[in-house]
Amino acid sequence: MLMQTEETEIQTTANDQPGNVVLRIHHLYKSFGSNKVLVDFHLDVIRGESLVVLGKSGSGKSVLIKCIIGLLEPDEGDIEIFGESISAMTAEALDKIRARVGFLFQSNALYDSMTVRENLEFPLRRHWIQVSQQEINDMILQALDDVGLAHTIDMMPAELSGGMRKRIALARTLILKPEIILYDEPTTGLDPITSREIIQLMMDIQDKYNTTSVIISHDMNCVRTASDRVVVLVDGRCYALGTFEELSRSQDEKVKQFFA
């Protein structure tokens, strides 16, 4: 386990496995007015791992994930995805990177005016993936099969339950077969049973497609079940890093409050 205190700086880089680092965050700063949300945040994410970013509500977890996908621009620092800095990218290059990085929104963000089929088709069409209509149909059915909701293909999002909407959002994220999936609080607003199902689904998907997962959460059940490593975000900094077991044994007050 690695800890950051007043005097020490946490070791968050993976120098021993540089080729396996798919996402590298260097000294990231982000503020909104006088509110400093991210302060010198740095972290490496290794290919194939499931990394959970744990923090209190309003601690900047969602801001971090939106900086990673380029929805928010950092004030300072850099983010490299697959070795390429996204801050220096053109819009076209960023779109290409985004086709390889899936994002599951906290609110699912399904398009209300489109059917499930059209929701899943949208990223395929917009990223100009060169596939025939038959292949698109097969990809949609495959993604819906993966989340166990093939029968909802012609339904509208408003006709689905909260858990089903989350699964459809996950299917839409999966349709481009991303190498990294960013999950923004995937179990928020779901009942405990559905939450467990979604977590299991996330783990199944990671095993099946060998994706790298970055999960933003404060749901300890999700953290315990889905994490290979956990980052504790405190005051905008990467405060502690380790496995769930390591951090749950920590005597540090700021870490203990999450695992108590």
Partner: peptide
């Protein structure tokens, strides 16, 4: 109302990450 609702439910962000301006 339509764009406002898309904004608060992150649908506009979802479009952006789907390769759409």
């Amino acid at each position: 109302a339509e764009l406002g609702s898309m904004k608060v439910t992150e649908q506009i962000d979802a479009m952006e990450v789907s390769g759409t301006n």
